[in-house]
Write a protein that binds this DNA or RNA. Sequence first.
DNA 1: TATTGTTTCCGTATGTCCTACGGAAACGGG
DNA 2: CCCGTTTCCGTAGGACATACGGAAACAATA
Lengths: 251, 251
Amino acid sequence: MAAERSGGGDPARTLALLWRTPPEPKPVGRKPKVSVDQIVTAAIAVADREGLDAMSMARVAQELTVGTMSLYTHVPGKGELIDLMADTVLQERDLTSDGTWRERIKHYADRTRAVYQAHPWMRDVSMVRPPLGPGLMDGQEFVLAALADSGLEPKQVTVAHVAVEGFVHGAAASEVDDQQLAEKTGESGDSWWSARQVFWDDYSDVERYPTMTSLWNAGAYDTGGTLAQTMRGSYDYGLEKLLDGIEGGMR
Amino acid sequence: MAAERSGGGDPARTLALLWRTPPEPKPVGRKPKVSVDQIVTAAIAVADREGLDAMSMARVAQELTVGTMSLYTHVPGKGELIDLMADTVLQERDLTSDGTWRERIKHYADRTRAVYQAHPWMRDVSMVRPPLGPGLMDGQEFVLAALADSGLEPKQVTVAHVAVEGFVHGAAASEVDDQQLAEKTGESGDSWWSARQVFWDDYSDVERYPTMTSLWNAGAYDTGGTLAQTMRGSYDYGLEKLLDGIEGGMR
DNA sequence: TATTGTTTCCGTATGTCCTACGGAAACGGG
DNA sequence: CCCGTTTCCGTAGGACATACGGAAACAATA
């Protein structure tokens, strides 16, 4: 449960792993059965299929037909493995795009969103103390470059950066949260909500919730689409409005 | 690990607990040693002090000097207990405020942020399938009422609502993530980052990260404050810009 | 007071998890 | 064939949620 993350270990060791600093070939000694890359790939595969909860050291080792403890020769611990997984999937973003600064940020948001869609377990990875690997850093540079081109002052760029980054990861996370729960519980978001329709009958109260009632009566909730489509729409809307605000504040 | 949540159980039973539907007094049978309220209060106390990971059924039972399995008489399971905890702390928001719709939304954001600050474990509670109790619903009504007063069309109100709600919870969550990790690992965010200063020496590259380098040289990162203060600033900035955007889009 | 129906309490057991420890196994070079 | 080096991995300890079923407490009744 809770926010899965590393951080505890030796920073130098973790950074060396993230950047795949040459493991200085060992001419002697037993040959490794697995590599760091294989471990990370297998871990991502397990998490994609069964969620981060199911991504146990034992499960990954089993995937590679290797003893559990063998993994610890190549990776300091589970936290660091999650760092490696996160940075690896963030590298899947293809951040080459021309266009206005707004277009570039929307491109960044789209690519990041795609990462979360492909790897729903990213919801459980905290980005407050992020893995400082190439995947994350390239993304930071991309967004900062776009914002710097927008005409904002340097100090404003860094503040706006945190806001944008927070919005993008946060929105991608909640959007994906739904699928993640659907996979784990075997119940889709739409069916979860309809099973709770009883709420309106038994507990809702026009006196207490007049706005909700009148919005409902006005048909504001007849989206005509799935929950996923609605969330996607709000994602786009929110980012658009945030960028509008940033742009408007530059005058 | 991962997103802690309930949802699995019988919706009617969970809703009855959330709304504290009268437990129809039992005139016969053994007297309960604990009540639902006591369990929820104890669970919140443990989570506040040691995080949601430490909030195990055994730990809560110990707190109440009761056997672990006794809790299951009053609460269906851990997931439902977390729902009850979340809705309870959301009720701590005092959502009575006059003023413009913007002022009311900022009030809502402040109160919600305060809840996360007081209960950092809220970061780990998914709001995608939220506990439909009074704490959550009163908040929804408050935000919807403010947006409806802003002059937006009903359909727009619901879209804007999801965006605002997502931003508020998301920003409060990341802001608090830092403290949560600090408590769990015993290392503050500021010290975590300074321990990773080696990154700039060993891996950063002016060729690869020109914008970051130039922003650094321009002093954009000399905030003169703690990490927490910086995050707080970005929270306010982001909400302001989002509301600017929503307001601007109404014309 | 003894019995009975009802409700709550909780010990046990199962199958998970991470990882510290230390010995066994494989390998290149002498 | 031996030895230093490196990797492999079995065992063990101390968590976790919760299904099951019997024991214990209580009010009403006999």
